[in-house]
Design a protein around this nucleic acid. Sequence first.
DNA 1: TTCCTTATTGCAACTTTTTGCAATAGTATA
DNA 2: TATACTATTGCAAAAAGTTGCAATAAGGAA
Lengths: 141, 141
Amino acid sequence: MSCSEAYTPQLRARGYRMTPQRLAILHVLHHSAKHLSPVQVYEQARADVPSLTETTVYRTLEFLAENGLAHPAHLGNGHLVYEIAGHEHHHLKCRTCGSETEVEHALLQKLYRQLESESGYHLTDSHITFFGLCPDCQKGE
Amino acid sequence: MSCSEAYTPQLRARGYRMTPQRLAILHVLHHSAKHLSPVQVYEQARADVPSLTETTVYRTLEFLAENGLAHPAHLGNGHLVYEIAGHEHHHLKCRTCGSETEVEHALLQKLYRQLESESGYHLTDSHITFFGLCPDCQKGE
DNA sequence: TTCCTTATTGCAACTTTTTGCAATAGTATA
DNA sequence: TATACTATTGCAAAAAGTTGCAATAAGGAA
Ligand SMILES: [Mn+2]
Ligand SMILES: [Mn+2]
Ligand SMILES: [Zn+2]
Ligand SMILES: [Zn+2]
């Protein structure tokens, strides 16, 4: 299934339009193995849509995140990066060497339930970064 | 105990210096009831140290965070805010109305332990924001 | 196909945050 | 108290991110 076939109906269903810019950006995210910064997305998507601007990339990434097609992440440098939605997970990142590990959301399921029942909130987010020391860097302490 | 008496030794012990700028910024954080943006810190701390620059505020907040005297937070708008360290907690924030609730870190203790034993990482961070819908906003769904 | 509505884009100006570097000023030592 | 070392600051310039607005174009209706 192409990116267009996959994502266009999702946008239409919410009253939004598919555009070459959005499609190019979705395509970049969909085929990236890792989180991408807005500038990285811009540079790659520009190959498809030369008229693309950084303004549109920033707005589109935020739009996709609001509509559940992309997930923003804070990986510790204070800057947002994005990835395509679909795989529910979180991250563990080492403060010393920067190494990262994924954590399945299923592992936090229980905690989410507990937080929900204690607070009354219904938790919707599932892309969090926890920080710490990786096994290797603990040795060097 | 004054801010200076409290924080100077902590910096010295790590080989850093206490300066009027750092003291003013720590003072602002210490006496604030809520998270502050770098610009808010700048405007308040400038009353103490008129020569203070925004550059120094950004660098100092990052420095204080790295050294455990301040905690950065992502409250959902993509911008970092800071608060003084000392009270281990997390946040629940409503995506619809923006309301916030604190969660004691003790509540996540078990999860942290579980993540640690499964991943081998030693988790150090304890200032996370979970997003969802507050009780009121769930009704309006 | 053509027309119409309005969501979306690009541009330009602006705000926020980061960076390199030379000047300044804590603080340890004598 | 004076000196030396170097961590820290302020400045200027650059990079990253945001906003208002007029022009464009997606897509439903005719
Ligand atoms: Mn991820
Ligand atoms: Mn907090
Ligand atoms: Zn590590
Ligand atoms: Zn709410």
